[in-house]
Computed example of a mutant assay.
Amino acid sequence: NLPALRAGIEAQLARYPHFRSIQVTDRDGELRWLPTTVNVDNHLIRPTLDPAAVAANPDKAVEDYVASLSTLPMDRSQPLWEFHLFDFPTSEATSTAAIRVHHSLGDGMSLLTLLMACTRSAADPTRLPAMPPLPTRTGAIYQRPRPSAGVLAFLAWVWSFVVLAWHTVVDVVGFFATILFLKDPHTLFKRVNHAETQRKRIVHRRLSLDDVKFVKNAMKCTVNDVLIGVTYAALSRYHFRKSGETDTHKEIRVRSMLLVNLRPTTSLHACVDMIKSGKESHVEWGNELGFIILPFFIGMHSDPLDYVRKGKKVVDRKKSSLEVVFTHVAAEVIFKVFGLKAASAIFHRMISHTTISFANMTGPVEQVEFCGHPIVFIAPSGYGPPEVSPPKI
């Protein structure tokens, strides 16, 4: 329903400052936001696809078109967001919208929060969808529980901070080594001679969150641990299948970047509360990220749960470190002292020296609709960095 979609986007999405601004360069050569008039029709794109290709395989037709978008620059004469609409059925939905948003408008967490704030509950379209429950953890991932009574408990508590400091030093050294010289070996997952205009294919797979939680509870770990283990297993099987290697005892150690949202655990609820009360201009939609460099193992295991065990071991080690805080502060300092180009060059060097990036985001917890259209699934993704980028939820 194009008129309903246009009206809904104009009333909801286009009211946010960055979604009605363009980027301009001032006299000092710095980029800044300049408010402009938004013509929503310019942002609703209905591509003309080959009817034969659509009839033969509609899923691949959509995937091919989205891959072609990765080679095309965005029009900087208007706000940097687009809706590409495919009004034909695929295997999963009656129609599809590919929403392309420039990363300068916000990180994945803020953009998904914004999208959720523009949806409505399918059960009651007059209200916003229910928010996810607040996490049980309230402090930082590296926060240590207070010691119980006793000298040994106190010494163990003190020792945990010594370990925290040591792990942080090791991780910071690894961070600088990665920027300067430390590169992952070339594998099937690492691009060579990466170019910004190189075509990048974006695919998605849905899996049952109930199954993930079942494994999580059985293994006494987290959803993140399970997803990292699943990705270990999937890419390992892919590698040995595609490479033709027969030595399944061989293990290739590469590294991945785990992107971490540094906003408070209550930030999602706070943002939605501001939007409900009409204070959306007070919401900060920018990038609030740090990252962790995770060892990543490509190898074959006879017990599938070994992938989860290895993932949990690596993540638990990284939780005992201030690496994520350091990387965020370092990025801020580099940006403010040396400028955008230096910060971009260092970040690009970091991701080009690693192999894979991970992120996750919490989506709606009930069935939702967007401008009157029931949503079957949301598949966030990204392109630009020279990496494989699984998974986003």
Results as ranks from 00 to 15, higher is better:
126 T>R: 14
131 M>P: 03
135 P>S: 05
106 G>T: 07
102 H>P: 00
119 T>V: 04
85 L>W: 01
90 T>S: 06
131 M>K: 00
134 L>Q: 06
128 L>T: 14
112 L>Y: 04
87 D>K: 09
132 P>T: 14
92 E>G: 13
128 L>P: 00
108 G>K: 03
132 P>Y: 09
113 T>E: 05
114 L>Y: 00
104 S>P: 02
106 G>M: 01
108 G>L: 10
121 S>A: 02
88 F>H: 00
127 R>M: 07
124 D>S: 15
131 M>G: 09
99 I>D: 12
118 C>S: 00
111 L>W: 07
104 S>L: 12
105 L>H: 15
119 T>F: 03
128 L>V: 13
102 H>Y: 13
97 A>Q: 05
85 L>S: 00
117 A>Y: 09
128 L>A: 15
116 M>R: 13
107 D>Q: 06
126 T>I: 10
128 L>W: 08
112 L>N: 09
125 P>L: 10
136 T>I: 08
119 T>K: 09
111 L>P: 04
126 T>E: 10
110 S>P: 02
113 T>H: 03
137 R>F: 12
113 T>G: 15
133 P>H: 14
89 P>T: 13
103 H>T: 12
138 T>D: 14
131 M>A: 14
83 F>V: 00
122 A>Y: 01
90 T>E: 08
138 T>V: 00
87 D>R: 09
110 S>E: 08
83 F>L: 15
84 H>N: 15
104 S>Q: 04
101 V>A: 01
119 T>N: 10
90 T>N: 01
101 V>S: 03
91 S>C: 05
97 A>K: 01
138 T>G: 14
104 S>D: 07
118 C>N: 06
106 G>W: 03
127 R>N: 05
129 P>F: 09
103 H>I: 02
120 R>G: 04
92 E>Q: 07
85 L>G: 04
137 R>E: 14
93 A>L: 04
99 I>L: 10
134 L>M: 05
111 L>Q: 15
94 T>C: 09
84 H>G: 02
125 P>M: 14
98 A>Y: 06
138 T>M: 14
135 P>I: 06
106 G>F: 03
109 M>N: 13
114 L>P: 00
94 T>P: 01
103 H>K: 10
93 A>T: 02
124 D>Q: 07
130 A>T: 11
